[in-house]
Each structure stands twice: as structure tokens, then as C-alpha cells.
């Protein structure tokens, strides 16, 4: 089993909330993503077992939603917005800077397994561009100094 007791418990707790069981799929995928950092076929099977739903429904839904990585990523999953508002304020150079500083290409994970950098579509924080999301947290109004500081802090946390 990949999903731990706590996650399973939380997934089961979503069942009474919804009039139909299938609605629990997205919450379950989210909980699984928070635990594992990514999703995969085994997780879909586990979720469908827990919720007594068809695996095809779980897997099909998961594949539709792009927020969940479908393969392992670094401990810190850096998602940089490259949509228009952020791009107008230098998102492309932010991406280049991150890639160069971490020594990885887009989509790659650093050798220490800490960081993966990807681009994402609009994060809904356009007035504080450029913006990136690392795991569940937003980092806004980014500057070179801020990024350096963020990476340093995360490295320290390990």
C-alpha cells in the first residue's frame, strides 16, 4: 500500500459529504498527491478500492487534471506561471534563472531530489506577478533576491 493510514482515513471521511461517491475522486487524488507528491496507477487502484469506485473513473479523472504530477518529482515542486501577466513581468527570465541556478532543465529534478521546476498556466495571482507555487504555497512579486532566499530556506529545511 502506498497511501498511509492517515490519508486513507481522510479519503474515507469524504464519503459522507457527497450525495454521490464518485465526487470523492478529486478530494482523494488531492490527498494522495499531498502525501506522495505525485500520482500513479497504483494510487488510482488504491483509491478505487478505498472508495469502491471503478479504477477507470479514477484514472481517467486524474489524467485530465494537470495539477497532479504523474511521475515522481522533487521534494519541492516548483511551478512557475508562464502565462501572460507573469510573462510580461519576466517569467521567462525567472524560469531561466531557476533552471540555471538549480542546474536542471524544465521538468527535471535536481540530483539531491529536492527540486523540480515546471511551468504552469495562470495561477490566479496576476496582480503580484511574477508568481510561482512550490508545493502548496504561493510565492509572489518575485525578484532575484527573493528566489535566492526561498531556495536557500528550502535547502536548509532539506
Amino acid at each position: 500500500m502506498i497511501l498511509n493510514d492517515e490519508t486513507v482515513k481522510k479519503i474515507k471521511a469524504t464519503v459522507p459529504i457527497y450525495p454521490q461517491r464518485r465526487s470523492c475522486i478529486l478530494p482523494a487524488l488531492t490527498l494522495a498527491y499531498w502525501q506522495e507528491g505525485h500520482l500513479n496507477d497504483d494510487i488510482y487502484r488504491e483509491i478505487s478500492d478505498i472508495l469502491d469506485l471503478k479504477t477507470v473513473d479514477v484514472a481517467s479523472a486524474a489524467s485530465f487534471y494537470t495539477m497532479f504530477p504523474k511521475a515522481p518529482v522533487g521534494k519541492y515542486y516548483i511551478q512557475v506561471c508562464h502565462n501572460i501577466s507573469c510573462a510580461l513581468l519576466g517569467a521567462d527570465s525567472l524560469i531561466d534563472y531557476l533552471a540555471q541556478k538549480l542546474g536542471v532543465k524544465l521538468g527535471e529534478t535536481t540530483e539531491d531530489g529536492l527540486f523540480t521546476v515546471v511551468t504552469v498556466e495562470c495561477l490566479g495571482s496576476c496582480t503580484t506577478a511574477p508568481v510561482m507555487q512550490i508545493n502548496n504555497d504561493y510565492y509572489e512579486n518575485l525578484t532575484r533576491e527573493k528566489v535566492d532566499q526561498i531556495l536557500e530556506d528550502l535547502r536548509k529545511q532539506g
Binding site: 477507470v56 473513473d57 484514472a59 481517467s60 485530465f64 494537470t66
Partner: peptide, 9 residues
């Protein structure tokens, strides 16, 4: 049945 689905978007 449950043995065919659509994936991605």
C-alpha cells in the same frame, strides 16, 4: 463495464 476510458485532455 469499466474496461475502457479516455485519458488526458
Amino acid at each position: 463495464e469499466d474496461d475502457l476510458g479516455s485519458y488526458n485532455r
